[in-house]
Amino acid sequence: MAKIKTIIDGIEVEVERDSWAIDVARELGIDIPTLCYHPALGPYGACRLCVVEVTKSKWTWLATACDLPIREELSIKTNTPEVIRSRKMAMELIMARAPRAESLFPLAEKLGVTKPRFKCRDDIGNCILCGLCVRMCDQIIGVSAINFANRGHKRIVTTPLHKKADKCIGCNVCVEVCPTGHVKTLDDGSFRHMQTWDADLEMLHCLICDKPYIPAKQFKVISDKLEGIELKRICPVCRRKETVDNLRYAVVEKVS
């Protein structure tokens, strides 16, 4: 594959054709803020925070780095006044949408937003529609228990027909990727409650320590994916212990 020359903040690099600008910049240690990009997922371009200034011959324009493929020589700047202004406005709009999303406060402050000048919403919780949960559930987990509904400013993330998410396997990936803590879960003994998706999942207990550790549905999905290889019903803690024990045993044996 042909390498393409490109310049980011004055640093000249050669990259694979169609590398995403955000990956290239991050590899160079250049910080680009984003709330909707995840390397495991394809580009999406929803939050608009990763905006950079792109110059190609005599043209200069703003583009989001997460969905900008490098396929010809570009000069990219990540820190111009225009970029700073755009990111600030994007953050301001996001904060007006989710004014109580505390996890965003440090980033907002860094981008120069303290109090949005706009009318703030208070009817939608902390969801900023980054789509990470939806895309993870669909593209990585392969379950698609949740999705967007409606369009425009009425868009929400929800379960099919707004009912209990019966496809949800309780893997908690949506909770982990959510940048604002909007998606909530609660483990309560034998059950995992996916509170945001109104799903209650029965937990399986570890065969060694007997602690509940994985929803039965998730266990089944993983087992099915392994196609015949047996998945031991052991929690991560016990598995680690077992692995260490096995190693130690192996080492002892070798020494003796």
Binding site: A145, T159, P160, K167
Partner: peptide
Amino acid sequence: IPLSRVHSVATF
């Protein structure tokens, strides 16, 4: 296809 996709399209 997932019901979530059908619902998404039906409300879009």
